[in-house]
Design a protein around this nucleic acid. Structure first.
Lengths: 208, 208
DNA sequence: CCGTTCCTGTAGTGATCACTCCAGTAAATC
DNA sequence: GATTTACTGGAGTGATCACTACAGGAACGG
């Protein structure tokens, strides 16, 4: 057991099928609504296989979040390889837009994560904790970006802007469940809003 | 059965106790996690009483949303009785801030509603539909407000700003579950962001 | 007092829940 | 070919699920 192990049967493929089915079901019905039997039916694998791959339901959901977040982060990283050109503002706008597009592509972890946040269960720590970690990671990256762009603002203002940005991204994600939304233009407007708020904050600093 | 009926036993009080308990449980565990037995335990009333007052679980949750939204709308209405003074911007800012404060006071319907939106269940229409209604109502009111304040923008821009505002309010509400947030200053920043975005939109219109 | 209406309490229903036991099998290692 | 490792299949565990049937009590109108 030194490296990634060769698969004897179709273990890794089964694991992925289970995760696919679990993401599907959890996206439809929430944490409580995700029954192992349903995951079993949709994946075509018996409950015993699910419990061979995952310790329990909690860790199954955590794995779904983990995989979807990794996919999102990877898509984001790939989209950032080519740095955008244009004015300072153009670059900022495009960076936000790319994040939004990547979110629309891999929505599972955000959907599940927000559900787990809202369901304040006392007894399901792993999945929730996993989401809080990836969220914190995202906040750090956003903060780093904003410190670059808004160098005339102090740390508190930056933090507030980051919180505003993430909150709006969450909210737009929810809105997308209700009505058809052009995420591209929505994130463009978000960029406008952040830029506008930043310049207003800067103005307030200079003449309090 | 012409008017509001006299209560023979403690019917109305029981109904409220059930709603209190249901709001409590649903806030903790989501729709699926809200078991009638748990509501029964917390309210101190047997399941048969719950089913006497409400047709089924779906309508119980819908009633929770309805009551919480009514309380919020009433709190909002009361806070708006005294129109704010100051500059145009000050008034706008204060109006948003009041809405946010009222939301923090009666959070149940928003929490439950967002959960129901994210859980795209095929078979629980009433509660979800109820939330979509109150949400549409809120959007209409916000739109009316924005048409007053941003008379240099066209309908599409107004609609986008309204969507942005509601999305951010949703997102801030979620963020409040994770970390301590000063909603007052957060909604103040939201006002700044909307004002900033609006002026940028207006500028883009005048020189496309 | 009687009857009606409102509401509660007891005791269930079959279905589904998360999860387990364990025998069986196919591939890799020896 | 024997043994080990990696999974699958089936059958089932007790607990809990939403929901119901029904008897009975308390407050009312008559």
């Amino acid at each position: 057991m030194t490296q990634t192990r060769r698969r004897r049967a179709n273990g890794e493929a089964s694991r992925q099928r289970i995760l696919d089915a679990a993401a599907d079901v959890a996206g439809e019905r929430g944490y409580e609504g995700t029954s192992i039997n349903l995951v079993s039916d949709r994946s075509g694998l018996p409950p015993s296989s699910i419990y061979w791959h995952f310790k329990n339901k909690d860790e199954l959901i955590a794995a779904v979040i983990d995989r979807s977040f990794s996919a999102w982060a990877e898509a984001l990283r790939r989209s950032m390889v080519m740095p955008p050109e244009g004015t300072r503002e153009d670059v900022f706008r495009l960076t936000l837009k790319r994040s939004g597009r990547a979110l629309a592509e891999f929505p599972d972890f955000l959907r599940l994560g927000i559900m787990l946040i809202l369901e304040r269960r006392p007894d399901e720590p792993t999945a929730r904790q996993k989401f809080l970690e990836v969220r914190e990671h995202t906040a750090d990256r956003t903060r780093a970006l904003y410190e670059l762009y808004f160098d005339d603002l102090d740390a508190d203002d930056i933090a507030a802007l980051v919180r505003l940005t993430i909150a709006t991204a969450d909210g737009l994600f929810i809105a997308r469940e209700i009505e058809e939304i052009d995420l591209s233009s929505a994130f463009d407007l978000l960029a406008n809003a952040v830029l506008g708020a930043a310049s207003r904050l800067a103005a307030a600093r200079s003449q309090p």
